[in-house]
Design a protein around this nucleic acid. Structure first.
Lengths: 134, 134
DNA sequence: TCATAATATGTTATAATATAACAAAGTGTT
DNA sequence: AACACTTTGTTATATTATAACATATTATGA
């Protein structure tokens, strides 16, 4: 099990760089950015990413194979994640909307099956890009 | 623009194999399955997949990098897709639930932004696997 | 009908993303 | 100190996806 608190050296390095970024980072771009800190191999990045995801510190944007820091408190350990993704500037925002989250967490399909986890990705233009394309 | 009707040879081959499959297919597994039909290169598969997605004939399961045939009529040209994914047997079902679809299509975030497209992936155990693990 | 634009194909090469497997070092118990 | 457990470092390789270029096929309109 992942402990609540302490991050290992590599985990901290990877988390720091993801938290500082304004948009989702890809694994190899993280790698190139931390080679000066002595991390040389993709494995080291992917291992850190896996743990950080487990801990709920970061999320993977599946449609982009990229990673963002968790800014929400709703998404209890990555069980319920929602993002808006700008198709123009690629910006990603985490959506934390209690109503939405509850609606989806309680959703059951036609067979009555409930699910323990979901990931939702919305696509459109962010406010900035909408104005610019006018 | 994608035409409404006709599929090209390669598109038809790729669609056929995806439609026959019971679970999502990966690009390279499609490739291996159609080499006897004279398709030799990944490009040929990815090009067909891209067009089929445009036409709404298939969907990509982003969390699995795999492709399924569209079984729904709700998801007008892939603008609104939802799937349930079994974490045990990897089975994927397309969810076509008008209420869910409307709810999400009308969703707007805290800034009032609406989105023109979404993809939702639920994870859990399918009925079959739930019984087996009891 | 023929020219021309658009779409689809075939092919080689390579980029980008991710995991396997193994050896060693560090950390936290009891 | 002995033990389990996690993390690290490293090399190699698997998997997923695109670039770039040449050719063929198929609309479509003048």
């Amino acid at each position: 099990m992942a402990q609540a608190q302490t991050l290992s050296r590599n985990q901290q390095i990877v988390l720091d760089i993801i938290e500082k970024a304004k948009s989702p980072l890809k694994a190899y771009s993280i790698l190139f950015n931390v080679q000066k800190k002595g991390i040389n191999a993709p494995q080291q990045i992917y291992r850190a990413l896996d743990k950080l995801i487990e801990m709920g510190k970061i999320h993977k944007i599946e449609s982009k194979n990229a990673f963002v820091a968790c800014r929400s408190s709703d998404c209890e350990i990555s069980k319920a994640t929602a993002f808006s993704i700008c198709e123009s500037c690629e910006m990603v925002d985490e959506i934390s909307d209690t109503k939405l989250s509850k609606y989806l967490s309680n959703f059951s399909d036609k067979k009555g099956t409930k699910f323990k986890r979901f990931n939702l990705e919305f696509f459109g233009l962010c406010k900035k890009c909408k104005i610019e394309t006018k």
